[in-house]
Design a protein around this nucleic acid. Sequence first.
RNA 1: GCCGGAGUGGCGGAAUUGGUAGACGCGACGGUCUCAAAAACCGUUGAGGGGUAACUCUCGUGCCGGUUCGAGUCCGGCCUUCGGUACCA
Length: 854
Amino acid sequence: MGLRIIDVPRTTARTRDLVGPGGGPGRSAMTTSTPNTDPHRYDHAAIEKKWQSRWAADRLYEARDDDPREPYYLLTMFPYPSGDLHIGHWFAMVPPDVAARYQRMLGKNVLFPMGFDAFGLPAENAAIREGARPHAWTYANIERMRGQLHTMGSSFDWSREIITADPEYYRWTQWFFVQLLKHDLAYRAMAPANWCPSCQTVLANEQVVRGEDGLGRCERCETVVETRDLEQWFFRITKYAEELLDFSSIEWPERIRTMQTNWIGRSEGAEIRFKLEAAVAEWDAITVFTTRADTVFGATYMVLAPEHPLVALVTTDDQRGDVDAYVHSTRMATEIERQSTERPKTGVATGAYALHPFTGARIPIWIADYVLASYGHGAVMGVPAHDTRDFAFATQYGFEIPVVVGGPAWDGEPLSEAYTGDGRLVNSGEFEGLSVAEGKAAIAAALAEREAGGVSINYRIRDWLISRQRYWGAPIPVIYCPSCGPLPVPEDQLPVLLPEVAEFLPTGESPLALNAEFVNVPCPQCGEPAKRETDTLDTFMCSSWYFFRYPDPHNNEAPISGGLAKQWLPVDQYTGGAEHAVMHLLYVRFFTKACRDMGIVPLDEPFLRLFNQGTMTKDGAKMSKSRGNVVNPDDWVSKLGADAVRLYLMFLGPWDRGGDWDDSSIQGHYRWLNRIWALARLQQARGSDAESATRIRRLTHRMIAKASEDIASFRFNTMLAAMMEFTNALAKEPERGAVDGEAWDEAMRSLVLCLAPSAPHFAEELWERLGNAYSVHQQPWPEFDPALISAETVTLVVQVNGKVRAQLETMVGLDAASAQAVAEADASVQRHLEGKTLRKVVHVPDRLVNFVVG
RNA sequence: GCCGGAGUGGCGGAAUUGGUAGACGCGACGGUCUCAAAAACCGUUGAGGGGUAACUCUCGUGCCGGUUCGAGUCCGGCCUUCGGUACCA
């Protein structure tokens, strides 16, 4: 037994000198700990404080632009500075931190920045509630969270920190707006907009989520949204709809790709113009979009959305009363009841008629709220026989239901429900007998020929509404001049500073509108008195380009220089929650493509790889302030250390599945670290023992292989399990007899290296105590010897009729005959074979032998 | 309704993709140390049955069926649950 416990000096003098007097950035979260004398515990408080200071002093994690090594840009979604870093932030940020540390050990020049998404409603609401100033409130929170991020032991490069509410930052947010405006990618339009009565502002479509009751609700406050007609600024994201469907150059989770694809909602079909019997104003026809042009001969009525501009024009005097009442009632009911798919169809006739493009038949024009103004042309042709909604409507109002597609089972009788399947066209003039697919093509072609329509592609996605009637955001840099019209603020006058205002109470108009000093400004073109835009930009715009800025955060000439863009972009790995699938993650892609086309950055996609972590819950419920179940890790950090909390979060399960916070198992990780600590204090008599060396080295290299594989694919839980297993096996070595000194040292060193990304403070301390040079975080990731991970013996499982009857240690590579012989020799196996007829033997090399007997 | 993901011990979760189900951790139980407790360490721990014993048998991955020598894994049909989406013409 060649092991004894020796005492290694706690801290070297050199290190102690580098820990500054104040103790560095550990800040208030650290409790003062009594000197640790327990031999079974390591002093996490002292160690974590010490190394955090040292790393900061040494700027260990700052990425340098002139570093010749391969760049690797790893980004995790930056937080909103809500005030406290809770366990959800840890759950989101620890794994990317581990990944960043791992990539550094692989020899990459890693850019792993952090910042704050600092504009937004909570600051303003806090101001209204508590009388705080949004600016002061936000920046105090940032200060606090920055400190908490330090206690996590994160390796963010703080020299590149960005805060979206800094004028140096939003100057460029505004600049991007001006560029989009100049390239006709931003426009102002009167349009029905989603209005959140609680936030007192408009919302983009993406920011309206469907509540459990099926109603459209504000993504932030869950208030049911209303529709209002307002003049607002939009970005032309629809121009990029087609390109946004192409994910071929990026590795993103299927789930997110599907959600974006569905959101964009590409639909192939045809446009059909139905001439009005009597033209009104500039309208001589109603255009509809349909995916079923093949059924055009079955159209027996047309429906306009109640909001359709033609409604007021075509309605006959007879019908005006009913139509006005219906339009009024839809307006009142707005989204609330219209969202329900269950309720019966309603509608009224306008009294006007359209003409069928092929038969010339008179077709009544109705309005009904099942037709949405925002989709297609806000008008449909009613084909009751082959559309379930039209069938319901036609049944309700007594329209004819002529069959124009005969399915294989159709007997020529009237239908009892809509038939939407394949079949042959009937009652369809010259197109008789064609299949559905042939009919679609032939009819679209015929329509084009008659200039009555043709092939068309429609998208569900709408342009991105970016105006907000709120204070705490970047002012939209536009000036309205009575004679020159709306003009962008000249670039040399950016940023348009957000003034301190006294009144934040939302009135439906931006609080900035009350500030005369802000509003009144000379026209940049003619110099006459003009007025500033008083709305602010959607904060999703701030986060649409923030990843451009980290590579070049202090550039005063441009948002990012061409050289640095080329060096660092795109982001190699992005991580964050899936809740941003069709908001942030779609906007960023649009923004990147728009910037490419404006010649600002040379890239098609912002993020090459995306990984979405799951949600961290508490007692099965989402954590939220309103539920009062938000877990703050600070207590655990002071009790057991940041490293133990990090390990706990990583060990919970697969990262993308989330996990439930249950603090009962955290101390198991602390226990594990202490066991490693104890193992490291064992110092063997320097000796060599070939048998022990082989055994230890095999264990070591197998552990490295497993850890390498798992960390690279974000499988942190199984990586740690492999390392724990290794620790257990290593701890048993001394009991087995002589221990090989060199192999033991290699084992300890490898364990510490593999642990370094996950438990950075602990590993750094142990690395030093094992006599190695600072810093463990600058060491190469250990490599494994493939020769050592292949086993020399395997467990051969012997089954009889599929049931395990023996497990035999055998040499690797036995052939079928020898394996069978070995298996048959086993007593237990023999007992089960006795008196039976052997029908078949299945042999899987180095795995199993199965005797099939009858 | 439609599109995805997931159902494995008391709990969180493993399982090389068809080859020993339950790795690793938590908890629990028993023991060592202690005046005692905590901590730490050692052992046991899917359920049930048989044996003084070393041992041994049966069942077992949401449910029902199937394919296969062999199924947590593949196929068919359900159930539950979590996301997403919903009159999109």
